[in-house]
């Protein structure tokens, strides 16, 4: 299953929805696709979709998906990384009226430069090749979270504070 999420930002992200739906129509994507569409205008004809999901539903879909595609909202793609999966990230862009500025692409690029293993899509026409890459290289989805180290160091600081 491929899970697509565009978050809760109050602007449409039709460009991503149409692209994914089109790839199902053309037969390039054959597995099932579920899209959280948010404030988009386009209603997918070939993918299953729902406007918004509860936190529990979000977690469940991320867990069950073979591939997760997200918009560039940090909370969206970081929640995928936190679950040890490598997200395909498509930032919303100002020029398509998908966001108020281009901070999604700026932050996503910084995260990539810092070594976080997200798959950043800068040209939406490349998204099929990103999806196809997963078929060949499943190991790439594994991600070593820094969370444990953070929590250990943080706990140490707190323990020393309360002494």
């Amino acid at each position: 299953m491929i899970f697509v999420t565009v978050g809760t930002h109050e602007q449409p992200f039709d460009r991503l929805l149409k692209k994914i739906d089109g790839l199902i129509e053309s037969g390039d994507i054959t597995e099932s696709v579920f899209i959280q569409t948010g404030y988009s205008d386009y209603v997918p004809k070939f993918a299953k979709s729902k406007q918004f999901l509860s936190n529990i539903e979000m977690e469940k879909n991320i867990d069950e998906a073979r591939i997760v595609i997200t918009h560039g909202g940090p909370a969206s793609f970081l929640s995928v990384l936190s679950k040890g999966k490598i997200p395909i990230v498509v930032p919303r862009l100002l020029k398509f009226n998908e966001h108020v500025n281009n901070h999604q692409v700026v932050f996503a690029e910084k995260v990539v430069n810092k070594g976080y293993p997200i798959k950043l899509v800068t040209n939406i026409d490349d998204i099929l090749s990103f999806i196809e890459e997963y078929k060949e290289n499943d190991m790439e989805r594994q991600y070593n979270s820094h969370n444990e180290k953070f929590v250990a160091d943080f706990s140490h600081i707190i323990v020393n504070m309360v002494r």
Partner: peptide, 8 residues
Amino acid sequence: AIDLGGIF
């Protein structure tokens, strides 16, 4: 500040 690196 204390830099603990990413929480993620």
